[in-house]
Design a protein around this nucleic acid. Sequence first.
DNA 1: CAGTTGGATGATAAGGCAACCATCCGGGGA
DNA 2: TCCCCGGATGGTTGCCTTATCATCCAACTG
Lengths: 336, 336
Amino acid sequence: MSTRRTGSTGAVKITDVAAAAGVAPMTVSRVLNTPERVSVETRERVQATIDRLGYVPNLIAGGLSSRRSRMIAAIVPTIASPMFSDPVQAFTDTLDHAGYRVILALSNYNDAGEEALIRAMLTRRPDGLLLTGAQHTPRVQRLLRDAHIPVVEIWDATEQPVDMLVGFDHAEVGAAVADFFAAQGHTHFASLAAGDPRGLARRAGFVSQVARHGGTVIEAAALRAPSGIADGRHGLRELAPALGPRTALLCSSDLVAFGAVTEARQMGIAVPERLAICGFGDFDIGRNSEPPITTVSVDGAAMGRIAAENLLARMAGGSPPSRILVPFRIIPRATT
Amino acid sequence: MSTRRTGSTGAVKITDVAAAAGVAPMTVSRVLNTPERVSVETRERVQATIDRLGYVPNLIAGGLSSRRSRMIAAIVPTIASPMFSDPVQAFTDTLDHAGYRVILALSNYNDAGEEALIRAMLTRRPDGLLLTGAQHTPRVQRLLRDAHIPVVEIWDATEQPVDMLVGFDHAEVGAAVADFFAAQGHTHFASLAAGDPRGLARRAGFVSQVARHGGTVIEAAALRAPSGIADGRHGLRELAPALGPRTALLCSSDLVAFGAVTEARQMGIAVPERLAICGFGDFDIGRNSEPPITTVSVDGAAMGRIAAENLLARMAGGSPPSRILVPFRIIPRATT
DNA sequence: CAGTTGGATGATAAGGCAACCATCCGGGGA
DNA sequence: TCCCCGGATGGTTGCCTTATCATCCAACTG
């Protein structure tokens, strides 16, 4: 009674190791997962057998049995920008050391597809989930709750995180930059913002705080996301005719700011005398170009690391803070 | 006889859907995986039940049964550079559309750890594997062969790929740049190379081709990998005292080149008159900074996409080419 | 009208591992 | 000397799905 399927993969499995080492499969499993619960001599004998047979454990099978996949799903808009590649890098590195792997999904800023994307990730039964942004439809929120796994949202802030949050308020950033400019005596303002929710939130915060200072903001059309140097250059050309004698410009990233600085130089617009420019993100390029670019620094890598640590803590049974606001600060450099 | 474990996850499973829809579990499975083999009315009824119950299929269990995880493992040194984030982005996007997910691992340029990293990935039973670079120890090669899954190597070329390869010869790149400079009448050469195998290979190709032209190359210490703008600035300062009246400099990336350009300007070294600079990678920054930077263009996104397509082709039973050399070309801009 | 064919569906049995509980054994205490 | 305790190890079963037949039925062939 067994014309079964064509047969096994032919690969060495835990029972093969167990038989060869003269122990039960369960003991081999312990050697791999909880070696401290196995006597030294048994452990060494089993380990030697594992090495000899070239046994590669099957975590698909192990995951089905233990109901822990040891995988974490991460959804970010893109990794083409340091804005997200830094957190993802840190997130991945941190989890690696704990034996977890990251399944990466890129949304390409398509928020409408978030539910489908999350659902697709959940079919993999990840032990945890990283999301970018904190705005989700009620359906998504329910989906996440029903999944019964820890979830971290990064790069944003909300009063009611789905589960855990590591981020900051983008409107506050915009407002802080407005204050910074105002303190320098600026009265004319402009903005080059990317069309993603967070870029728009920074712009909104900037605009309303400028209004509080009694000014108004010249705006270019929203840039594509992720926006790059070329967008900054084009944006400045669009803005140029409307610039006053002395204008303060907030850009949605240091790349955009660099583009604006470059284009301003080309157009003979003096920076910072006639055009003060502040970027966002504290990227390499803003630090190391000439002139160095004033920016808002947010530690993306720290966000990724903390997100990973919080997930790990939760999976270990702990109760990390559900809402961590990371600091941002304006770094004045030569463009303001 | 069953004091079994504490119980199930409580989640809806395929048998629940089947019972609710009045069909066998196998039919539900078909609705999800091969809907064309199910009659329209049954399909719709089952699908409605799935939606109503909020069933999220368990691909861990499915993968164990079908022996296909629908996951692809990708190992790259880092995603902090467009050099690798572009291919990974394209790779991920391409596979997403085919229902595959990417498990990401970052080697941080630690080649010594490659075997352990690959072994760890293989425990996940990926259906395919992306590797960066084509130099592997015999042990690694055996490990890969024993895994019986398609493997693509990118960003490098070798006569004997482990399985499939999508890349190019870095020494040829260096040589081509040497020829390019020589054709412009250069007789003094310099190099700023990152310490990774491919950066060093480009430098080596550059050096030997320069030698063929009867010249020699001034070299700075190998830069850390991934190297950035600051490395280019520091590197140029290191190189400056040794520069001739007219020197041609090859940098290991456009970031390094940008740093060199920036520092040269600071030091009053005329570019390109006294120092001609060629970068590598055709990054955004080289295209859009002033002056635009001469570079070697390689389509990283295409490499990632082709790698994904080849893996998909192989998993579909096809036989894609085992060695695809992607073109590179020098794009002369204002720094040479 | 019997026999055949093929599409739709179902029943059964893995797939490889770990949770849970049972068992075994040696040493310590009374 | 006997019992208990605790660490080490083993046996059994389930994790949830899909591969592989087997079955069923309707339409079709001649």
